[in-house]
Design a protein around this nucleic acid. Structure first.
Lengths: 362, 362
DNA sequence: CACTTGGGTGAGAACGTTCTCAATCCGGGG
DNA sequence: CCCCGGATTGAGAACGTTCTCACCCAAGTG
């Protein structure tokens, strides 16, 4: 087997390589880094010496000089969430393609962690940041990062008044479309599982969900508004008790579903705002002994990998998740690489995929 | 709104802060970094100046000196795969808890990309590496990294002869157990979907799967061996045509399943070696008009989030995926922080979760 | 009073690159 | 033979920290 020999503790520096090759560090640097001009003879000597010594450039030192770390920071609530892991894949692919790496931080929807994360990434001098912010409340912290010269792209979620590019979908229109489809099938009693928090729940408590306009700037708020738009236009009165905002986890959705079916007048259809919530619904239906779509119709955001495989296959509002991430990466790297264009907001198209989980009542 | 004022292009250095506070850079460093000794008066002056100027330490410079980047490299085939995104969550949580960050690279099961990734991470001087290697063929590249002084922990997959810690499960025993359960239910014709490649397929082509012992060191190989063990002990002849190794993607599994049911003597049960493959099986069954478990039983590795929610809920071999990642993180950081213990191999326990996708033929 | 002790301080080295700049080398034209 | 211009080279600065070391000073100690 070829030499996997002695235990080297620390890697050789460019100076050692230069000495070994009989040239100056400047020349060695030029040969190894591919800049400036070097004679063929010197280059060969340097490269041979580097090979012999197992030289690896120290990118820290390089970054100190060039001012570029070739690193993108990614700040998301939870990498386990399929939405974010797919989006991250998009970001990472674009980044790698252009020679950048990705530093990942989970925020767990926790504002304190998010702020801490922003601080860490700033100290690491990442060249740019893709953030799916927990809450608009972090605007100042994000603006501080931008002011410090680190461009930011917001993914999936928007922060009003922030000086950053955003990438997402038209949430209001997508939710409206999904709701309209259920209405067209004859459903009048349509539940909405938002995954939101108390903050949202408070806004929704008013008659007719009128409070929702105030938060239509957020992802969940916009979708809820779209849901309300569709109902109103169809002449259906929005019932706040059919809208549940009790957390983003699967069990939260399961509990919410159980509560819906304890109502005197339970829904005939459910719209879930992401695939994890849809899973919670399915779980609850199974526990309640209800069948989909015979007893209740279900439509969900996000075309999870299991959506097509289960019985019945799930009808979904498919977001181009990978592309959202890739586009975020592109916008960010364009800016990192010097583009001075104005702040832009990209809305990628969604696609409703009709399968068999929503049945007609007509 | 509080000052999100002027556009600062580059961040102030410690020297600027020191000048502003009227002390030397050494003292400013001590005050900000919390080392050495500083008078209360100086400390206050420095911290106030730092606050005023929006100072953020440059961790690149710090790393140059201390020799620690506080960064862990993670090299996995595909972060979209739920196994790896969950494991990454475990790694990242442990890392953050101890003050480390995570640099992520996808290899796409591509040896070239993997080698390139190792190189990049080495140049970034990560303090340690968690790798789920594509193939044992990369042993020399991995050994070179270790020899350069960067500790490595192997996740889920092993590389014979490599000087690194490993974290995983007892794949052979787990597969054997799952197969035995199907046998106990009366199944004699049990198919295996491995997700492996041509390399594996070649070994399996021999009568009675005898070639599998040669690759029992790999994850897929060990599981296949366990499957064979169970069959042999039950006096059932392993049928190579029931073992399919045609790729890790969902569609691969769907095609393999279709082929299985085109056999004159199709299986009555299927064991899938990961949840993506199980999804492919479900998809194929739906296309073929077959029902689970009435027409065929299904058992899969990995307790995917949808496994419990679908109908019928899926019986699975649950790996403690999060804990695998966390343990890998712990082993690595212990070593980074100076532990000199010998190479260890952690095998975490698996748990068979019996649900309703496997029925008795008796 | 001289002598130790130890907290506090600053000058300057060190980390490993890239960049700047001046010096040297080489061949060809006058 | 001398001079010009471009390729090649090396010395040394620079990046922003932490580390080493010598120094100062006040408070004890003999």
């Amino acid at each position: 087997m070829s030499g996997s020999g002695g235990v080297r503790r620390s890697m050789p520096s460019i100076e050692v390589v230069a000495r070994e090759a009989g040239v100056s560090t400047a020349t060695a640097g030029r040969a190894l880094g591919g800049y400036g001009s070097v004679s063929a003879k010197s280059r060969e000597a340097v490269l041979a010496a580097a090979e012999r010594l197992g030289y690896r450039a120290n990118s820290l030192a390089r970054s100190m000089i060039t001012g570029l770390t070739h690193t993108l920071g990614v700040l998301v609530p939870d990498i386990e969430n399929p939405f974010f892991s797919r989006a991250l894949r998009g970001i990472a692919d674009v980044a790698h393609e252009r020679g950048w790496e990705v530093l990942l931080i989970n925020t767990d929807e926790d504002l304190t962690l998010e702020r801490k994360g922003l601080g860490v990434l700033a100290e690491r001098r990442v060249d740019g940041l893709v953030v799916a912010p927990t809450d608009a409340a972090d605007r100042d912290a994000l603006q501080a990062v931008i002011d410090a010269g680190i461009p930011v792209v917001l993914l999936d979620r928007r922060v009003p008044g922030l000086d950053a590019d955003t990438v997402g979908i038209d949430n209001r229109a997508a939710a409206r479309d999904a709701t309209e489809r259920l209405l067209k099938l004859g459903h009048r009693s349509i539940a909405l599982l938002t995954g939101g928090d108390e903050h949202l729940a408070a806004k929704l408590a008013r008659p007719g969900l009128r409070g929702v306009e105030r938060i239509a700037g957020t992802t969940v708020g916009a979708r809820t508004a779209g849901y309300r738009d569709a109902l109103l236009e169809a002449g259906v009165d929005p019932r706040p008790e059919l809208v549940s905002a009790e957390g983003f986890r699967r069990e939260d959705a399961a509990e919410a579903t159980a509560r819906l079916f304890a109502l005197p007048d339970p829904p005939t259809a459910i719209l879930a705002l992401d695939s994890l919530l849809a899973l919670g619904v399915l779980l609850a239906l199974r526990r309640l002994g209800l069948r989909c779509p015979a007893d209740v119709s279900l439509v969900s955001f996000d075309d999870a990998d299991w959506a097509e495989a289960i019985s019945p296959p799930l009808s979904v509002v498919a977001q181009p998740i990978y592309e959202l991430g890739a586009e975020a990466g592109r916008l960010l790297l364009d800016r990192v690489q010097g583009s001075e264009r104005r702040v832009t907001h990209r809305r990628l198209p969604t696609r409703f995929i009709e399968r068999e989980s929503a049945r007609s009542l007509l």
